[in-house]
Design a protein around this nucleic acid. Structure first.
Lengths: 340, 340
DNA sequence: AAACGTATTGGCAGCGCTGCCAAGTGGTGC
DNA sequence: GCACCACTTGGCAGCGCTGCCAATACGTTT
């Protein structure tokens, strides 16, 4: 842990190379260098070669900070997400990142940890970088966050949900419908004593909407959730394992359990495997998200697959383009798996 | 999928509010506004109140682009990582992000997809933002990438590996040692016919080092890898499942298999569960990374836990501070699990 | 030959802020 | 009363680049 000191020079750095240095060395005007580097405007082949060679020789790296200040657009896109270890958002980023890079944009991101006030503060500090676009998770924000986003004068994409009004661009699907579809699926397979294991729904707004849709659809079929175990923390496999144990302890005669997401459901599946509970014979399990690990488990999990990568890609493309604002509903897909 | 058009005004935006606007409205000089906003220099309470109130009234958001250009430091830290969906890097980011945010920095990131040339290009475009620090995975880079990093005059942290020379700051652990430790552990449990399932090692330099250490340690014990299945792609649960199937097909009498990481190992475990191969009775499995899902599987996986979050935190803290450069070895921990 | 487009080039203001400096104010000590 | 100091304040030159404009060169049209 102790640092082994490095002989890296502590000396004064030479002053950084600027565009003016390149211009002088190449014997051309600053504008010409700028034109060559941005590939805009016409420049003679001879001048271009001279500039490029000088750039290489001096190791010049353009200063985008200065460029951005001088021009209008910043070529930065801000991403504000609740979590980075949650694979859902990692997938969104993995869709957005190459799209942005490919279009010459840079991604700046910040993690709210599911805290609306933190989101508000982070949106503010992101806007200070004058990004040309902002991608943010969900449709629920604090009043000040709404005001800032509306007033920013940039493209805003809200993702992963379509169940409320959007500010500008919305890319996602209906979480209410996803919950409803799950309820109908379980009912269609003859399940009647259905339990629920979820996590902190005050923080996970979209999880709450799924549960709401789930209950609604059950009610429509004259049914209801027999018992629910809500663990007051963020979802994890461990929580699912424990949550299902507690639920079954309290209400042993369930024939199916709906989980707020695949992490929890996988924990539930592991619990059943460890306890010798036969799935789906004795108990059916259904998750949500369509994670790889759930698909490849010894018993593929019944779940709903959401096109998260695509959402990231589309949101990125839309905030960088002038395609019309509006709602882009990408839908979801119910995976029957082998646990129901 | 079709956008439902939104009535958002297409009108001309009012010119954005600048610090000069605030100064004029508040009846003070620009310097005073700047001092209030940055909490530097002395300002009378009365002036401060007037400024803060005006800022709130106008909804002024400072322009960090301009601020950065005018001052020296940029308060940006660049992160260049191979992947974002790989939980290892997501964990690193989740450690780095709050640390940076807490210190008033903004994280900018880019994903190389394990391609050295892409890394080179991305490092270049990140440096164009004049970050005050750069965090990059691993110690292997292209010559031009090395040159750019050395010449950038900023703090550089190379993470997740200590098995080669670093440029400036190194935060990680020895992958060679991790491989060696795994070999010794398997040998100590009496395993003699040991197989290996790995992925594209030309791309995963650190995985290659672990395998190298593993083979080295086995050789030291007068043993060797009985058979190895290298799948030419990035690791995944699916690949682990298929890889183990192929390996066992070819060499059925193995008594242990070492996997390049937990994704592959988990796939292997799932394969055994599906095929009724008893673990560790018939076959022992060992992974690497210490993922939650591996710890919580019906049979906890033998693996090596690496402090990825801590690495992210430390790297973030170090690039923002003037703590000494050098190697910070955070070590790793062997988890015996129940699969060996 | 004059007038006119097109390609190429350099100069320079200014993007919004910070750093530095000079100036003003009021309290203290001698 | 004067020198001195700490605190407070505003003015203004840049930071490194881009956008605009004017200038030049050269071929074409009438």
């Amino acid at each position: 842990m102790a640092p082994q000191d490095n002989a890296e020079g502590a000396g004064d750095r030479p002053p950084p190379i600027t565009l003016a240095d390149v211009a002088r060395e190449a014997g051309v005007g600053e504008s010409t260098v700028s034109r060559v580097l941005r590939g805009k405007g016409s420049v003679s082949d001879e001048a271009r070669q001279r500039v490029l060679q000088t750039v290489r020789r001096l190791g010049y790296v353009p200063n985008r900070i200065a460029g951005t200040l001088a021009s209008t657009g910043s070529r930065l896109v801000a991403l504000v997400i609740p979590s980075i270890t949650n694979i859902v958002f990692a997938d969104v980023l993995s869709g957005a990142s190459p799209t942005l890079t490919g279009a010459g944009y840079q991604a700046v991101f910040a993690v709210t940890d599911y805290d609306p006030k933190a989101e508000e503060d982070l949106i503010e500090s992101m806007l200070a970088w004058r990004p040309s676009g902002l991608i943010v998770a969900g449709l629920e924000h604090t009043p000040r966050a709404f005001a800032m986003m509306r007033g920013a004068g940039i493209r805003i994409a809200e993702i992963l949900d379509t169940d409320a009004e959007g500010i500008d661009i919305v890319v996602g699907y209906s979480n209410l419908d996803a919950g409803r579809a799950s309820a109908r699926f379980l009912a269609s397979r003859g399940k009647r004593r259905i339990g629920y294991v979820g996590h902190d729904l005050a923080r996970d707004k979209r999880g709450a909407k799924r549960y709401q849709g789930f209950c609604q659809a059950l009610a429509g079929l004259g049914m209801h959730v027999a018992d629910a175990e809500i663990v007051p923390a963020l979802s994890s496999i461990e929580l699912g394992r424990n949550g299902l144990a507690v639920l079954l302890d309290r209400t042993p005669d369930l024939d199916a359990v709906y989980f707020a997401n695949d992490d929890l459901a996988l924990g539930g599946l592991f619990h059943c495997m460890a306890k010798g509970i036969s799935v789906p014979g004795q108990l059916a399990l259904m998750g949500y998200n369509g994670l790889d690990v759930a698909r490849l488990a010894p018993q593929p999990l019944a779940t709903i697959r959401t096109p998260r990568r695509l959402i990231g890609e589309m949101a990125a493309r839309l905030v960088c383009s002038d395609e019309p604002s509006g709602i882009y509903d990408v839908g979801f897909e119910l995976i029957e798996g082998a646990t129901v």
